[in-house]
């Protein structure tokens, strides 16, 4: 399984044509205490860079964009009741949605862990 990152601080773990998407540790830290998460329902078609989910802290609301195009197969229902999970386990348990990639070549435009870490370091 490989993990990729976007400049908007989403991550995607890919296994074949299946992807799992969430937001990075950096993103949750920048937002602060997460109070609400809205994930897409199964069957929704997402396109690369399009709105996919919403994540909110008390004073900020952020769109989560889809790192790739595809069809949602599951949203993480747990986050509705436990938004704090995004703070606690951003890159593991607090995944936002799973999708079937429609164009895996889009992954080529994303960063790997090392490139993302370097990108984040440049922001501070």
């Amino acid at each position: 399984m490989s993990m990729y990152f976007t400049k908007d601080h989403e991550w995607i773990k890919v296994d074949g044509d299946t992807g799992v998407v969430g937001i990075t540790a950096y993103a949750q830290h920048a937002l602060g205490d997460i109070v609400y998460v809205e994930v897409p329902e199964s069957g929704r078609e997402l396109r690369l860079g399009g709105d996919a989910a919403v994540v909110e802290s008390v004073k900020a609301a952020s769109e989560v964009y889809s790192p790739v195009s595809g069809t949602v197969t599951a949203g993480n229902a747990v986050l509705a009741d436990q938004p704090a999970l995004v703070n606690e386990s951003p890159e593991d348990q607090a995944w936002f949605f799973k999708l079937t990639l429609s164009n895996p070549t889009e992954l080529e435009g994303l960063m790997d862990r090392a490139a993302y870490d370097e990108y984040v370091a440049g922001l501070e």
């Binding site: 008390v58 004073k59 900020a60 609301a61």
Partner: peptide, 12 residues
């Protein structure tokens, strides 16, 4: 639940 409101969400 202020994230619904204009001072945070602006055009959305």
């Amino acid at each position: 639940l202020s994230t619904r409101e204009q001072h945070i969400r602006r055009e959305k």
